[in-house]
């Protein structure tokens, strides 16, 4: 009986082997139907065997092993907060570094002048007038009508000075007027503030050819501003046949809303003598 059963099992195994061999017959690749069926069968077998093991493994890892995860999570959150603050500080330092670098470059480019650095203290309390108060005054070399610049261009001029502070009238103020010319065409005019972040170049005849994007620089007339300091770029030119002068709008090179550190532009000691 036992021998009979063993022979039957052996026969079944040999039959199965033959079926697989037959299914694979004639195909030299490993993707024959028989081998594929075996692989698929193995896949399901593996899944069935693996699932209870995976369940126990998951139970261990996700519940029992995570007893300290809450504390660890809190610690990590704290660490992330610390890192965020550090990132913020580093970002601020990077910005400050960039500004100082730009100013050092500017300083080396303008060695004919003495540059007096100053920080912004307060801004104009009205919406219409554009002036700022800086934290340096006559004690630090600032004087009335002193040109104030930053690496981007002209910011304004000193209109009031006390020992420790100075008031600067920005170029965008409606009361500001600076003799200037267009750098490429040498067309002269007066740059006036318009209250908002725009300037206008006045008294340029409408027949003159003015190109959009041309740089407008100080002309040095009246002696208040040295020649060649950049004021802005031509943004828009409008001509009217009934008017003698063209209306030229200029976008200021220095962003007045973002100024933090500025330079007072003083004459060199030798030049002053």
């Amino acid at each position: 009986m036992r021998n009979h059963k063993g022979a039957r099992n052996l026969f079944l195994l040999v039959a199965a082997a033959l079926i697989i061999l037959l299914l694979s017959f004639g195909q030299n690749s490993s993707s024959s139907l028989g081998l594929n069926i075996i692989r698929e069968g193995f896949f399901f077998f593996e899944r069935i065997v693996r699932s209870p093991v995976g369940f126990v493994h998951g139970l261990w890892l996700d519940y029992i092993y995570l007893v300290d995860a809450r504390q660890e999570n809190q610690d990590l959150k704290k660490l992330v907060d610390e890192m965020r603050v550090k990132c913020m500080i580093l970002e601020e330092l990077r910005e400050e570094n960039w500004q100082l670098k730009a100013m050092m470059d500017y300083r080396s480019e303008h060695q004919e002048f003495v540059l007096y650095p100053a920080k912004l203290l307060a801004q104009d309390i009205t919406m219409v007038f554009k002036s700022v108060i800086i934290d340096r005054g006559s004690r630090h070399g600032f004087y009335l009508d002193m040109p104030i610049v930053n690496p981007d261009g002209v910011v304004g001029r000193v209109i009031a000075v006390s020992p420790r502070t100075a008031e600067v009238l920005l170029v965008t103020d409606p009361n500001s007027a600076i003799p200037a010319h267009i750098e490429d065409s040498r067309i002269k005019g007066i740059v006036k503030g318009r209250g908002i972040n725009t300037l206008s170049l006045e008294y340029v005849r409408r027949a003159e050819e003015v190109h959009i994007g041309s740089a407008v620089v100080t002309s040095g007339l009246l002696g208040m501003f040295p020649k060649g300091l950049i004021l802005g770029y031509v943004q828009e030119v409008t001509t009217d046949e009934n008017k003698m002068f063209a209306q030229i709008l200029i976008s200021p090179s220095a962003n007045m809303e973002k100024i933090e550190i500025v330079f007072g532009l003083g004459p060199h000691v030798e030049a002053a003598d």
Binding site: T126, M127, V128, F129, P174, N175, R194, G195, I196, T198
Partner: peptide, 24 residues
């Protein structure tokens, strides 16, 4: 008061930041 100052100084209220004016 702001409109009056704008009118007397620069001529046009359009040249002012209207959003900031209203919010102010």
């Amino acid at each position: 008061t702001t409109t009056a100052v704008v009118a007397s100084v620069q001529g046009s209220i359009i040249d002012t930041n209207l959003g900031a004016l209203l919010f102010g």
